[in-house]
């Protein structure tokens, strides 16, 4: 077997031995998949967004009319608002919570921290279809969440799945369950890179753990935090699967859980209007692009690195 892998040099044309070519040879499998499944659809979507693409038929160019359609859609502003609120919500939860948990797990004061790490990370690997069904039961009126809130805080039972206002909180809850472990992992890798000496000298100077957290851990974690924030915003604006699964293909009562991605899906697969859907996709991509650009400037990653 091994013999066959060690191919004689002469069988491979000299061109592939060139230093500038070799990396691309190794990257070829990834690049092929990336070009076919990522780049090509993106280009196609941009083209489609300028075409009248309704149903199966030949398409003609319609200029910007698909983009005009998008802004005429009654649900577009609602979807945009929902998506933004959802993204802000996930940022408010999914940055501080994993940060604190990561620091705690890293502090050596938690027994069996590896077990906790694994347990918290598991949701990221769980099938969302299964999770959606389980969350429907958890969020039901007689479900676990209501019983828990009633038992501990004495709260009235809430209609999580039936009231429009509770749709986004429900989705943020699922996002928290799903992504906390992942973000802990990111923060953890950031924590490992902070030199231990900093803490030691601070301790000698008599700094309290809280002071060390504020003056050493937080500033040193800035690149990691930036990374997690960017990822969360991109993920937040693209949210699709969570509401899709939780509301069985819909967007919840009163469209309370309608996100941009869901509206794109609905425009394409219910109205069979791929042109307008593609235009919406391009708009969504622009939004994410602008946000990322602002953050890059804000965090000083572009240009000057401090």
């Amino acid at each position: 077997m091994l013999n066959s892998l060690r191919m004689p040099r002469r069988l491979i044309p000299g061109f592939f031995h060139h230093k500038k070519v070799v990396p691309f040879v190794f990257l070829a499998p990834f690049l092929t998949v990336f070009l076919i499944f990522k780049v090509y659809p993106v280009i196609l979507a941009i083209i489609m967004s300028f075409q009248n693409f309704q149903g199966v038929k030949s398409q003609d160019w319609v200029g910007l009319s698909n983009y005009e359609n998008v802004f005429e859609l009654v649900r577009f502003s609602q979807a945009l608002t929902n998506t933004t609120v959802y993204t802000i919500g996930t940022l408010l939860v999914l940055i501080p919570l994993p940060l604190v948990l990561a620091v705690l797990l890293d502090s050596g004061r938690v027994v069996a921290s590896t077990v906790f790490r694994v347990l918290i990370f598991l949701p990221a690997l769980t099938s969302l279809v299964v999770a959606g069904t389980v969350f429907r039961l958890i969020l039901a009126k007689d479900g676990f969440l209501n019983l828990f809130l009633e038992g501990t805080l004495g709260l009235d039972r809430l209609r999580w799945l039936e009231v429009s206002e509770l749709a986004l909180p429900s989705l943020i809850l699922i996002a928290t369950w799903r992504w906390t472990g992942m973000n802990i992992l990111y923060f953890n890798s950031g924590l490992v890179n902070i030199p231990q000496e900093l803490y030691e000298s601070a301790a000698i100077d008599g700094a309290s753990p809280w002071k060390m957290f504020l003056s050493i851990t937080l500033p040193m974690l800035r690149p990691t935090t930036f990374f997690v924030v960017v990822l969360s915003i991109i993920g937040g604006y693209q949210v699709f699967v969570e509401p899709f699964i939780l509301y069985a293909g819909g967007a919840g009562p009163g469209d309370g859980g309608l996100t941009l991605a869901l509206l794109i899906y609905r425009t394409a697969f219910t109205s069979f209007n791929f042109g307008t859907a593609a235009a919406m996709g391009v708009i969504l991509a622009l939004i994410i692009f602008v946000f990322s650009l602002i953050q890059f400037r804000f965090f000083g990653v572009l240009g000057r690195e401090d």
């Binding site: 039936e162 009231v163 429009s164 819909g250 967007a251 009562p253 009163g254 469209d255 309608l258 609905r266 219910t270 109205s271």
Partner: peptide, 19 residues
């Protein structure tokens, strides 16, 4: 017909019954 159903299923009946 599909779009009408979608409107009823999402906001229409919610506005009628809940709001």
């Amino acid at each position: 017909y599909p779009e009408i159903a979608t409107i009823f299923q999402t906001t229409g009946l919610y506005d009628l019954i809940e709001n």
